[in-house]
Nucleic acid binder design. Structure first.
Lengths: 240, 240
DNA sequence: CGATTTGTTGATCTTACTCAATAATCGTGG
DNA sequence: CCACGATTATTGAGTAAGATCAACAAATCG
C-alpha cells in the first residue's frame, strides 16, 4: 500500500516541505528521494554555504535558520538577492551555468540539506511527478523574482517594506508559524539592500508604521498589528 | 547515423535556437521534439499571445518579431516584465500556478511556435538531455531576473539604460545579428516602464549618450558607437 | 492629409539618499 | 555577570536624482 505516511515523516525530518510532493509520490519513490538527500550541514552565523564562482553540484534546502544569497559587484558592493527560510530551496540560478552566480551565508545558526543535482536529474527522469515538481519549483522562483521586479521598478519605499513584511508573514504562515509575530532574521542593512533602499529609510519607515499602529517593532521582533493596513499601504489585496 | 543535420534545419525553421540542443539530441529525438511543436501563430502588432489569468498549456518560442510580457496592477498600471526576441521562450513563470501570471503581446508583426507543456513533460522524461535543457532554460531565466533585480535595486538611470542596451546588443549578437546597429522593437515608454524610470528620463539619457558620442539614436534605430563607453557607463565588464 | 500617438526638452517639485550625530544592541573576554 | 568596543539602528538636516507637469515636435496611421 502506498501510504503517504512515510513521506510525511521524512519530510518533517528534513524540512523539505517544498521539495517533497506529499500526494503524488509513493512511499517507495519518497524513499528514493530521501536516499539521495544529504542531511546535516550545520552552519554558524556568517558561515558560507557556497561562494560566487563555486562549481554547482547541489541544490540546498533550508532545514532551520535562514540563509541569504548575494553577489558582489565590481565596486565591491554587496547586492542581496534573496532570503531563504526553512523549507525553501536555493541554488537554482546555478543550474544553467554550472557555477554559483551568488554567494550564500547563514544569517543565524542554520542547517541545510544538500541535494545533489545529478541525483535529482536521474530520479526526476524516472519519477514523473518529481520532474513536474522540479519544473514547478523553478517556475515559482521565476514568478517570485518577477513580483520583486515589479516592486523595485514601481513601488515607493513604504510599499516595498509593506510588501516585504507581508511576504515574510505569508511565508511564515505557510510554515505553520505565526504570521503576525516573528523575528526578522536579517539586519536592517540587508532589508534595505534587498529592497533597493537606504538603511535610514527602512528605519524611518519602521518607526512610521509603528507610530501609525500598523506594526510593533522591537529590534528584530516584529508584530503586525493590522494586516489590513499593511496590505493597504503596500497596495496588495489582503490574503484570506 | 545520428547526424545533427536534420536538427539544424528544423531549428532554423522554427527559430528554436534555445529550445533545441544541437549537440546532444539525436536526429530521431529531434524529430520527436519537432513533432510536438506547433508552428505558425502569426501575430500582428498589439495582438495578444495570452492574457493574465489564462490557463497555462504551452510555452511559446519567438520565431520572428518580438513580444513583451507585462502585468496590470490593482490601479490599472502596466508593469513590463520582459521583452522576448527571436529564439527566446516565454511562459515559464506560469508552470507552477498553471495559469499565466502575465499577459503577452506582440510589439510588431511576429510569429511564435507553441510548445505544449504536457508534451515537453513527457518527452523530457524519456529524453534525458531535453530534461536537463529544460532545467537550464528555467535556471537561466532565474539568473536573468536576478541580474535585473540588481539593476533595479542599485543602479542609476544611466547605468540601467546602458546595461539594457548592452543586454540587447548581446542578445542580437547571439542571434547572429548586428550587435552595434539594431532597431528597438519597443517604445520608449516600455523601456522606461521595464527599467523603473520615467519616459522623460529615458529620452534625456538617450540624447545625453548621443551627445557623448556613445550612441547614435534615430527614433528606434540605435547604433552603438562605443561599446567600451557603454560598458563603462553601466559599470559592466566588457564582453569579448 | 489631419488626427493621434510617441518622443523630446524645459522648469519645478518630491522622494529618498547622504552625511552626521547619537542610541541601542551584540559579542567577547575578564 | 558586567564592561568594553564594535557593530547595528535611529533620528535629524540638507541635497540630489529622477519624477511630474507642461509645452512642443516628430513620427505613425488610417
Amino acid at each position: 500500500m502506498n501510504s503517504t505516511k512515510t513521506f510525511n515523516v521524512s519530510c518533517q525530518q528534513c524540512g523539505l516541505n517544498e521539495l517533497c510532493i506529499p500526494h503524488t509520490l509513493t512511499s517507495g519513490e519518497m524513499d528514493e528521494v530521501n536516499h539521495v538527500i544529504k542531511r546535516g550541514k550545520p552552519l554558524q552565523r556568517s558561515d558560507y554555504l557556497f561562494n560566487e564562482g563555486d562549481e554547482f553540484k547541489s541544490l540546498f534546502a533550508v532545514r532551520s535558520g535562514s540563509i541569504k544569497s548575494f553577489s558582489i559587484d565590481d565596486e565591491g558592493n554587496e547586492q542581496v538577492i534573496g532570503f531563504y527560510l526553512p523549507g525553501e530551496i536555493l541554488g537554482m540560478d546555478a543550474i544553467d551555468s554550472q557555477s554559483h552566480t551568488t554567494s550564500a551565508r547563514a544569517m543565524e545558526t542554520s542547517s541545510v540539506c544538500e541535494i545533489p543535482f545529478e541525483s535529482i536529474e536521474s530520479l526526476s527522469s524516472s519519477i514523473r511527478n518529481l520532474q513536474l515538481h522540479m519544473y514547478k519549483l523553478l517556475s515559482r522562483e521565476i514568478h517570485f523574482d518577477q513580483e520583486l521586479q515589479m516592486l523595485l521598478a514601481k513601488k515607493t519605499a513604504e510599499e516595498r517594506i509593506g510588501a516585504f513584511l507581508m511576504n515574510l508573514s505569508m511565508r511564515y504562515e505557510q510554515r505553520k508559524l505565526s504570521s503576525t509575530r516573528f523575528r526578522l532574521p536579517m539586519a536592517r542593512a540587508d532589508i534595505a539592500n534587498y529592497l533597493g533602499l537606504a538603511v535610514e529609510t527602512v528605519s524611518r519607515i519602521f518607526t512610521r508604521l509603528q507610530t501609525a499602529n500598523v506594526l510593533k517593532v522591537e529590534g528584530k521582533e516584529i508584530e503586525i498589528l493590522s494586516r489590513k493596513s499593511l496590505c493597504d499601504i503596500s497596495h496588495l489585496k489582503e490574503p484570506e
